[in-house]
Computed example of a mutant assay.
Amino acid sequence: MSRPRKDPRAERAAQRVAGATRPRFDLARTPETATSGRPRRDPRAEERLALVPGTLRRRLDRTRRAGEAAIPAPQPLATPAPDAPALRRIPEPAFLVALVPDAPGGRLTPHDRQLFGAARLLADAGGGAVVALVDPAADDLAAAGADRVLTLPVSGYDPEGKALALDAALAALGLRHLLFPESAEGGDLARRVAALSGEALFAGAESLTAKAVTRAAHGRRTEQRGAPPTLISLAPDAVAPHAGTLHEALPVAFAFPATTGGAILAAEFVAADPARVSLAEADFVTSAGNGVSDFETFRALIAALGATPGASRMVCDAGLMPRAAQVGASGTVLDARCYFALGIAGAPQHLQGVAKCEHVVAVNTDLHAAMIERAGLAIVADAQEVMPALLRLIAEEASA
């Protein structure tokens, strides 16, 4: 060999720490008695040198060499501010596409927002504008996609007066299309306007484009297709809601003709008992899961909230709640506006049952539970402690 052999014993003796009772060795020390003429590698020192500081997980930079400067700690990236939606103005529209949302209590439902999406689809195809014909002023009309807003001179439940006002607006404004939601109130209003105006109504449209509108017929064995007529009622989930641009929602002045009294003298909505409403028709459902053991407090909370009771499959299998209260793919699929889950982890079948709910509120001790991830508002706490706290807050609000 061209180089002398190493002497491990001499190197080991050179690394021994003097003065120690038990033999101790400094492995980072370079042996002075090494016969190879080269310093030995220190893997631990190299790893300490390659360690990237300031990171949560252990990271090593293998490209660095001895004597290089330390890598500075990475700085947290600044979260860019979300861009404001662009405002779109249509000062002189070529035509008008109107819609009549249900908007119960001034709040647009998901079906109403899909109606705005259909109206925008028809209006944007030829430079038109969307006119929202509303009874009370609804929220988020600009974000929903309304270019103009026309307030109807009718308040409350008055289908005859509203149909007469819509017939007058249809004739005076020269509306190319007038859209309704195919709902209990919207479908009835669409048929009244069709009878007054003499226009053909395409009811229950399941797909809509600027050139064609379709629906199923004859027990869904055939499909009816045609050009979009003046009056259209839209089925749920037929068109995606409008998103991306903000519109003006300018108020429109229009002189409606004076309405005369109709056959309906007075009408009012009679609220149903939420405890007796079926889950499929309930608007607000509160469910108990395996994390609830005090069902007396649970029933008191349901009565205080005015909600319809529900439960997970485990609770129903245990006989703590009736089988009719089971929520999920093997129970009842909900179409509620709000779902309040207490102590429910969120099995896949249960999540299928709440997929159509507009708002989900969950209470669970597990931060990583599937129901917590699905919820728009989550409380990571024990449901047994949250229920009495909610009852106290409701009592304080009632007494104030």
Rank of each mutant, 00 (worst) to 15 (best):
R120E: 10
T35V: 13
R176A: 09
L141E: 04
D335G: 14
A318G: 10
D273S: 00
L164H: 12
V354S: 00
G262V: 09
V277G: 07
E281H: 12
Q224I: 14
A66N: 00
A34F: 00
A45Q: 04
I232M: 07
P348S: 11
S36D: 09
T297R: 12
R88A: 11
D167N: 07
T260D: 10
A217K: 07
D335E: 09
A217T: 06
D158W: 08
A200I: 12
L87W: 08
L27E: 03
A325W: 02
R3K: 14
L265D: 15
P322K: 07
A125Q: 15
E268N: 12
M371P: 04
A78M: 06
V363G: 00
Q114W: 03
R107Y: 14
A240S: 09
P93N: 08
P257Q: 04
A307L: 04
L122E: 00
A216T: 14
A144H: 08
R313K: 11
I394S: 11
P8C: 06
G289N: 06
R113D: 07
P43K: 05
A10G: 13
P53V: 05
P229F: 01
E385D: 09
G161R: 01
D366N: 02
A347T: 12
T245E: 11
L108N: 02
L367C: 03
A119V: 00
G328N: 00
G156R: 09
T33V: 10
A125E: 14
E223F: 14
S287A: 15
G54H: 06
E223Q: 12
R176K: 15
T30D: 15
A171G: 08
G306V: 02
A210F: 03
Q75L: 10
T222Q: 05
A123W: 04
Q224D: 02
